[in-house]
């Protein structure tokens, strides 16, 4: 689980920036940008505190 959480968090960060980039490329609407950024924001804050700043092992 400890190995999965950081991966989930980093995926969430990519998920936060990906919608704006796709919006810049005119692939998605602004509304979906707002929705997906919020979803991935929630994922980030749900997972990052579980591993950031904690010692492994």
């Amino acid at each position: 689980m400890r190995k999965v959480l950081p991966i989930l968090s980093w995926i969430a960060l990519v998920g936060v920036i990906a919608p704006p980039v796709m919006y810049l490329a005119d692939f998605v609407t602004l509304e979906s940008v707002k929705t997906w950024m919020l979803v991935f924001t929630i994922v980030w804050f749900a997972t990052a505190p579980l591993w950031m700043g904690r010692r492994s092992g």
Binding site: V16, I17, Y23, L24, D26, M37, W44, F45, M52, G53
Partner: peptide, 25 residues
């Protein structure tokens, strides 16, 4: 202070998002 550490990478990304969305608009 701990929460600020969790938020920092996300905030930086959201700042980038501001610029990217603003540019598209």
């Amino acid at each position: 202070a701990r929460f600020a550490n969790y938020a920092a990478p996300w905030m930086t990304i959201v700042f980038f998002a501001f610029g990217i969305v603003g540019l598209r608009q």
